[in-house]
């Protein structure tokens, strides 16, 4: 009994030491989210509720604008799907097998946000314990939701007239892009995505994200089949050469 309590505490300490800076960052971003939500005229409690039940930073920022504009539910569904479709790829390398217990596994999947994936999947799975994974995710989740609560409370009273809070989202995306490019310096991907984004802005500014992400998916499918074809050609050339 004592042992497992001690183990749990040390898991928390390790998780906090390794990921606490990101917890603080999510708390700060959560404040921004709370202020943004109240600046759209929503009540103070909506931001922490969204953050607690959804826990998907970037799409929450986008959803708030759609909710305020009364966007159709189908548009909400499609936008959530396309913006969060990248999560389809997180499960492939996330060490869920290190998490013990069905409920804990379920929570770990629920709370698999970008930051959780980046912080956990980058580690050697053999060095991770169930507790460390869960504390990391709980810390992120709690920071994000409590930041949103603080922002909702502060925003409703103090920062109502503050302009430019939405910039936080832009800064977040710029930083994530630089990080993703450092992780995978693939100029063709960046160029295709930038092109898809600009094209969608020019053609369909009202549904830019939908159109851009769909166009990019198509471009990737084309790129994939072109790669395969050229690999295939090289393969047959080599075979002919060898013969």
């Amino acid at each position: 009994m004592n042992d497992s309590a001690g183990e749990a505490r040390s898991d928390l300490v390790v998780a906090a030491r390794e990921t606490g800076v990101i917890w603080l960052g999510l708390f700060a971003l959560g404040i921004g989210f709370g202020v943004l939500v109240t600046s759209h005229g929503f009540p103070w409690w909506l931001a922490p509720v969204i953050s607690a039940v959804m826990f998907a930073g970037s799409v929450e920022f986008i959803l708030v604008g759609m909710l305020a504009a009364g966007a159709p539910l189908a548009a909400v569904a499609l936008t959530t799907f396309l913006v969060n479709a990248r999560h389809l790829f997180y499960g492939l390398s996330f060490p869920l097998h290190r998490v013990r217990g069905r409920l804990r596994k379920a929570y770990s999947v629920f709370a698999l946000c970008d930051e959780a994936f980046a912080l956990i999947a980058s580690k050697n799975p053999d060095t991770l314990t169930s507790g460390r994974i869960l504390w990391t995710q709980l810390g992120l989740h709690a920071s994000w939701a409590s930041g949103a609560l603080a922002g909702g409370l502060v925003g409703a009273t103090l920062l109502g007239g503050l302009k430019g809070m939405g910039f936080l989202l832009t800064a977040l995306f710029v930083v994530l892009t630089i990080d993703a490019f450092r992780e995978n310096p693939d100029k063709l991907t960046a160029a295709l995505a930038g092109g898809a984004g600009l094209l969608a802005l020019a053609l369909t500014p009202g549904s830019m994200l939908l159109v851009a992400l769909s166009a990019l998916s198509l471009a990737f499918v084309a790129r994939h089949s072109l790669n395969r074809r050229s690999r295939h050609c090289r393969g047959t050339n080599r075979a002919a050469h060898n013969a």
Binding site: R86, F173, V174, L176, T177, L209, S217
Partner: peptide, 24 residues
Amino acid sequence: LLHDLGRWMPLGAVTILAVYGLAT
């Protein structure tokens, strides 16, 4: 195909989000 998409989409998706943010 899904393997390639998994390799390209993380950078592609955040790049589009950055363009979206800058366009606001």
